[in-house]
Design a protein around this nucleic acid. Structure first.
Lengths: 344, 344
DNA sequence: CGCTGTCATGATAGCGCTACCATTACTTCT
DNA sequence: AGAAGTAATGGTAGCGCTATCATGACAGCG
C-alpha cells in the first residue's frame, strides 16, 4: 500500500504514469496476476484476464518495457547495424527484416556505422547494453573487440549480405560467384577487353569480392582484368564521370562491368548524352537489379540480388531461434539471378 | 557483499554479465561513485575516474542501459515512426536524423506504420513503454488515441515532412505551395491542359496537398485540373503505366504534373520508348529532386525538397530541447526549390 | 575559532516489473 | 480414501542502476 502512495517522501515516481500495480488494484488482483494476464494470457482465467484488460483500457496503462526487460532480461529489441543508409541496398534488407520482426512484436534498434568498424564496435556495445534479443549486422567483417563482444554476448548474431564463415547465423549470397557469373556472360557475348569499375572498395568490400570473381574468369582465359576504383560513393553521378575516365585510360574497352547499378545506369545515361551506342560502342553491366535498370533504354544487364527476401529470411531464422525452436539452418544462400538486358 | 555473491539461491543474475558493482569493487570505490565516473565525469576526481575507466576496460564492462533507464527514467532512445521504408524520401529524412542523433549519443528506435494510423498508435504505445526521450513522426496526421497519448506523454514530439499546426515541434515544408509553384511554372511555359498524376492519395496525402495547390492555380486561371489517381505505390513502373492512361483518357494533354519523381521519371523513360518527344509532345514535371531526374535526358523539371536537411534540423531542434536549452523554434519551414530541367 | 561553502564520496532506497516458489482449491487416478 | 496431479493466484525478492540525501574533509572568511 505505502509503496504505491505518492506521499512517500522518497518516491521518484512520475506521478502521471500508470503502473501495473494500479491496474492490478483496479482489477482486484495482485500485480503479478495482472502481469500474467498481459504477458501469459493462457496462465490466468478468462474472467481475470477480462477484468485486467478492462482496467488497462480504462486507466490508459502503457506497460513500462524498460522495467519489464530489466526484470526478465529479455527485451524484444533487435539491433540492426548497417554501414550506410544512402545505399538503398541496405535499406531494402532493413525493410525485409523490419516487416517480419515488427509483425512478431519485436522492435528495431537501428545503427549506422558509416563503414567504420570502430563505430560498429561502439554500436554493438550500446545495443548489448539494451540487452537486445539479437543483433543483425551487414557483413562478416568486424574488428577484434567487436568480434569478442559478439561471440560472448550470448545473443543470436545474424550476419547478412554475404555468405561465409559467420559467427553464428548467416544469410547472404556468394559475391565472388556473382562477379564470375556476370563476367562469364560478358565473355559469352564476345567481349574480351572488360574494365571493372567500383566505388571505394575499402567501403564496399563486397564489390571487391565480385571483382575477384570477375578477375578469376578473365585470368583463366588469359585476359587482363583492369580495375578502376573511384574515390566516391557509388552514384549515378560517379557512374557518369567514370565513363569518361574509362574511355580515356582504356580506349579499346569493349565492356564495363560496374560494381553496382547506380554506377552502371549513370554511365549508360552519360553514354546516351555523348551519343555512344550501348552496347555497340560499349557494353555496360551492373549489379543489384534496381528497378531503374529495367526502365532505361537499353535495359541494363545486371544481377538481381533478393535483398528484401534476405531480410525476411534472416528475420524468420532469428525468430525461430529466439522462440527456442531448434529447427533452423545456420547458413542460407539466397542466391542471385543474372538478368540479361539490352546493354550487353 | 552477499548481494554480489552468485551463491545466493534467489539470484536471477546471468553470471557472465559484469556489473557496475564489480567494476566499483575492482576500482576500490562504491558503485555510485563508479556510476558517476562514467556518467558525470566532472563530478569525480581525476584519479578516481582513471581507475574506474581502467577497471571497466579490464573487466570488459558493458553498461546495462535498461537498468540505467529504469532508475533514471531517461533512455537516450529516440523513436522514429515513418509510413514506409520503400519510399526513399523517408529514408533520407531518417538518414539526417540518425546522423545527428547518433553523434550525440542517442539511439534510434525505428517503426514503420505502412500508412496505417492504428499501427502508428501501437508503435507509439510501444515506444513510450521504452520511455524514449522523444518521438519523431512523419506527418501531422494521427488518430485520436495516438494524439491523446502523444499529447500527454510528456516527451518532446517532432513532426516532420509537412508544415502545419503541429502538436509540439514541427519541421517541414508547405506542400500546397510546392504544388502551386510547379503549376505556375507550367503555365509560364505556356501549358494549359495539365493532368496531375498521383499514386494512392489516401497514403500519400501530402501529394494530395500538392494537388490542392496545383488545382488552385488552374482554377484561378479558369482551367480544369484533372486528376489521375493510381492504385499503386509510386514507382518507375507505375509512372510508365500511367503515361498510357493519361494519353488515352486525356489525349489533348500538354503537360503532366506528377506527384513525385519516380512516377515522372518512369513516364519520361516510357515516353522515350514510345518515341514521344519530351517536352514537345508532352511536358513532364515531378517532385522531390531525386538524382535520377538530373541524369536522364531530358533532365526532369522537379521541386527539390531538402530531405536530409529536414532530418538534421529536426534532430538539432530535438537535441536542443532535450538538453534543456530554451532557445528553439517550434516550427521550421525548410522550403523547397524549383529545379527547371529540360522536360517542361 | 566556528561558520559557511564546495568537493568527493558513500548509504539508502527505490525505478516498475517478473522469476521463483508457495499456497489453495479442485480434479483424477489407483 | 488418500496420493498425486493441475490450474489459478499470490508473496517475496530481486533485475542493475541512479536520485536523493548524508557525510566528512578541507578551504576561505571575518
Amino acid at each position: 500500500m505505502s509503496k504505491d502512495s505518492p506521499t512517500n517522501a522518497k518516491s521518484r515516481r512520475r506521478p502521471e504514469q500508470v503502473t501495473l500495480s494500479q491496474v492490478a488494484q483496479a482489477a482486484g488482483v495482485s500485480p503479478i496476476t495482472a502481469s500474467r494476464a498481459l504477458n501469459h494470457p493462457d496462465k490466468v482465467s478468462d474472467s481475470t484476464r477480462q477484468s485486467v484488460l478492462e482496467s488497462v483500457e480504462r486507466l490508459g496503462y502503457v506497460p513500462n518495457l524498460v522495467a519489464g526487460s530489466l526484470a526478465s532480461s529479455r527485451s524484444r529489441l533487435i539491433a540492426i547495424i548497417v554501414p550506410s543508409l544512402i545505399n538503398s541496398v541496405f535499406v531494402e534488407v532493413i525493410k525485409g527484416l523490419q516487416e517480419t520482426l515488427e509483425a512478431q512484436g519485436y522492435q528495431i534498434l537501428l545503427g549506422n556505422t558509416d563503414y567504420d568498424l570502430d563505430r560498429e564496435y561502439q554500436l554493438v556495445r550500446t545495443f548489448l547494453g539494451w540487452s537486445c534479443s539479437a543483433l543483425v549486422t551487414a557483413g562478416l567483417r568486424h574488428n577484434d573487440a567487436c568480434r569478442t563482444l559478439l561471440a560472448n554476448c550470448g545473443h543470436p548474431i545474424m550476419e547478412v549480405m554475404e555468405l561465409g564463415k559467420g559467427m553464428d547465423l548467416n544469410v547472404g549470397l556468394d559475391h565472388t560467384a556473382a562477379g564470375s557469373c556476370m563476367t562469364n556472360h560478358l565473355i559469352d557475348r564476345g567481349y574480351q577487353r572488360i574494365v571493372y569499375v567500383a566505388a571505394r572498395l575499402s567501403h564496399d568490400y563486397r564489390a571487391g569480392m565480385r571483382y575477384e570473381g570477375h578477375k578469376a574468369v578473365l585470368k583463366a582465359k588469359g585476359l587482363e582484368a583492369p580495375l578502376l576504383e573511384l574515390d566516391t560513393l557509388g552514384s549515378l553521378q560517379a557512374g557518369a564521370e567514370s565513363l569518361a575516365q574509362v574511355l580515356q585510360h582504356y580506349p579499346a574497352t569493349q565492356a564495363i562491368h560496374f560494381a553496382n547499378d547506380d554506377l552502371a545506369a549513370g554511365a549508360l545515361l552519360a553514354a546516351q548524352r555523348r551519343g555512344l551506342s550501348v552496347p555497340d560502342d560499349i557494353a555496360i553491366a551492373g549489379f543489384n537489379g534496381l528497378p531503374l535498370g529495367q526502365h532505361i533504354t537499353p535495359k541494363l544487364t545486371t544481377i538481381l540480388s533478393p535483398r528484401e527476401d534476405m531480410g525476411r529470411l534472416a528475420a524468420q531464422e532469428l525468430i525461430r531461434r529466439l522462440s527456442g525452436k531448434s529447427v533452423y539452418r545456420r547458413q542460407h544462400d539466397v542466391g542471385f539471378t543474372l538478368q540479361v538486358g539490352e546493354s550487353t
